[in-house]
Amino acid sequence: MTPRDAADDNTGEAGGSAGNNRWSDLDRPPLNAAALRRALVRPGGLWTGLEVVRSTGSTNADLVAAAGAGKAAEGAVLVAEEQTAGRGRLDRRWTAPARSGLFFSVLLSPREAPVARWGWLPLLTGVAVATGLARAAGVDTALKWPNDLLVTVGGEERKAGGILAERAGDDGVVIGVGVNVTLRADELPVPQAGSLALAGAVSTDRDPLLRAVLRSLEDWYGRWRAAGGDPAAIGLQEAYTAGCATLGRMVRAELPGDRSVVGEAVAVDGDGRLVLATPTGLREPVGAGDIVHLRPA
């Protein structure tokens, strides 16, 4: 890969005065790329390379392009200190101050699993991220189907992160993850947003947080791939169900074609679809769509 605006192993500092430079916040030190590589890239492991860039538009877009050009292999990890055009589902923008979070993408090639089960990859990533953050940050992270990471701030459920999966060629998938780590209340893009710091994290040091998340993802992905993508065989379906804040709630699913369905989210099926029990007594599986948690009447 040839990432844009690449930094050195310590994602060096930009010039300018400390008072007005977004890179000079001492509470937000740079990631140590060399130390991360030493900890994560090893013979026989999943992660084959790790790059940290100071700023880029989207790590997902960069890694998809690199994979398409044959410049990235499975296990490539691209991390940005800042994303200027980060994307979520439905082309929503994801923006955050420099070094305020974890913004990274990984390239996977799950050839051992049927394509029909690749829909589990963003759900698997959600479980892995939640597990890693619980260990390293001491924060309970819930999952909103299919790709949001939720934390509790002042007794309220807030979105602190998201996951975006995109195809890369015939046999590749790029998974992008964004997590707000040190975002302060006055920096929130919307009132419904949150961060690990606002949720009372015991640690906001991004190096150990990223190591914990990537190790957790390597573990879950390795077991899922070895099981041929079967989420039940490795306890993935059970783990996702246990951590999913959407289940048991009334939701509205905004579906393709300007259609919407309201019902109780009662299960996540073997294909990773959210199953809704509608007021008419039907059970409707939702494979793609925007989910809105409805408040109790």
Rank of each mutant, 00 (worst) to 15 (best):
L294Y: 04
P122T: 07
A242I: 09
V202K: 15
G222S: 03
W94Q: 14
P279C: 07
A7M: 07
A185N: 01
R87F: 03
V153I: 06
P296Y: 04
G68P: 06
D271P: 02
T204Y: 00
G12Q: 11
T2Y: 14
L26M: 07
R37H: 12
A85W: 10
G161D: 05
A113N: 00
A212N: 13
L282S: 08
P189N: 02
G176L: 06
E218I: 11
G228F: 07
E157I: 14
I175T: 10
G154R: 14
E13G: 07
F104R: 13
A267L: 04
V64A: 04
V177Y: 09
G228P: 01
V179C: 01
D219W: 13
R4Q: 12
T278M: 01
A18D: 15
A142K: 10
E264P: 00
Q83D: 05
G263M: 01
G132K: 11
L50Y: 13
P189V: 11
R38C: 15
V77L: 04
I291A: 06
T241M: 04
A288R: 03
L36T: 06
P231S: 08
F103R: 13
S260N: 15
A14I: 12
P97W: 04
R42M: 08
N147D: 12
D62I: 12
L236Q: 04
R252F: 06
D258I: 02
G101R: 10
V261S: 00
L63D: 11
G169M: 05
A239L: 13
G257E: 03
R117F: 03
T278E: 00
A232L: 08
R89E: 02
V251N: 05
V177S: 03
P122S: 04
